[in-house]
């Protein structure tokens, strides 16, 4: 598998009067062509900042201070603003979390689609309309010709997210970064969108970085998964391996607290405590304050990268046996 995107040692900080806090702290990620990578973690773990860092949409006080973002061999950290602009929406497209706020309320859907095309290539009016109609039809929007002339407020949340996905597809990108695109939608629409995205990835060979906190989505969608905690990737690997045999106690905790693993009536597992604030991260392993497998060394040394098969994790006392509740599949 050739690496389409290779992120190495990415560090993104946010400057505050008291100092710079790292929202993303040494992240490594690899996505191959046509691959779906799910980036999982709690709120505030740095998932979204990672996604925006890749296309360098980080505004002050945020700043990318270290690392390489190799996209198709070129380091995006060294790219000019114009190169980045030409890349965004063309080779790397994004879908945002809240479909209600991503579309401009005062411009028609047609205009917002057309500008995404004309920003990257010159195109006749007829061709723009044709491509827009096709993209809308592809994500399951009925009567696309009529819809092009409408404004965002005439669409439901689910429909707007489909429009956003259709916009992302317009220029047949190599990579789509989807930042929790189904979080704001209800479950039935969520699964429709997941199904369509999966189909599209397969049909067009588009790689997808899907940022989520929902393990059910990971099980359904991901080829590979990376688990993020306090700005770092604590575990990554093929989705089946990570979900079936998690090695990091945090991954295990997340799996246990997922609804699919408990019998009805049973209490849902909960990881003790809260994710550490960005300005108060513990020494050594950041998860040690909430970990039930903590040992003395955790407070002192940041765990080194370990590998077991294709699975990579950072833990001093990794989970060894399959401790997830007996053999029950995730949803």
């Amino acid at each position: 598998m050739t690496g389409l995107l290779d992120v190495r040692g990415l560090r993104t900080v946010f400057h505050a009067p008291e100092g710079a806090w790292a929202a993303v702290d040494g992240v490594d990620l690899t996505i191959g062509r046509g691959e779906v990578l799910c980036l999982v973690g709690e709120s505030g773990s740095g998932k979204s900042v990672t996604g925006f860092s890749i296309v360098r949409l980080i505004d002050p006080p945020g700043e990318i201070v270290e690392g390489e973002i190799l996209f198709d061999g070129a380091d995006l950290r060294r790219a000019s603003q114009e190169d980045l602009r030409a890349l965004r929406g063309n080779r790397i497209a994004m879908v945002f979390q809240d479909p209600l706020s991503t579309l401009n309320p005062v411009l028609t859907i047609g205009e917002q689609m057309a500008e995404a095309i004309t920003a990257h290539r010159s195109c006749s009016k007829a061709q723009i309309t044709e491509e827009s109609v096709r993209a809308l039809a592809r994500v399951g929007i009925p009567s696309p010709e009529v819809r092009l002339r409408q404004y965002p407020h005439e669409f439901s949340g689910g429909m707007r997210q489909r429009v956003a996905i259709a916009i992302a597809l317009l220029n047949s990108p190599d990579l789509i970064i989807a930042d929790e695109p189904t979080t704001a939608l209800d479950v039935t629409i969520q699964s429709q969108i997941l199904y369509e995205v999966q189909k599209l990835a397969r049909e067009t060979g588009t790689a997808i970085l899907w940022i989520t906190h929902d393990l059910a989505i990971v099980a359904e969608l991901a080829d590979r998964v990376a688990v993020m905690y306090a700005g770092q990737i604590v575990e990554s690997g093929p989705a089946d391996d990570v979900l079936d045999r998690p090695r990091h106690p945090y991954t295990l905790g997340l799996l246990k607290s997922s609804t699919g693993t408990v019998q009805p009536g049973e209490r849902l597992h909960q990881i003790d405590g809260n994710a550490p604030r960005i300005d108060a991260r513990p020494s050594g392993c950041p998860f040690r304050t909430r970990c039930d497998r903590v040992v003395a060394v955790c407070a002192e040394v940041y765990p080194a990268r370990q590998q077991a098969g294709e699975q990579i994790f950072r833990c001093h006392n990794p989970v060894t046996s399959a401790s997830v509740t007996s053999g029950e599949d995730l949803p």
Partner: peptide
Amino acid sequence: TQDYVKFARAKGIPRRRIVNRHILRN
């Protein structure tokens, strides 16, 4: 700071157009 401006940037829309069409109109 609105999402629609960030989304327009993520679409690769030139800054000039973002200001004149997306921001000014609003």
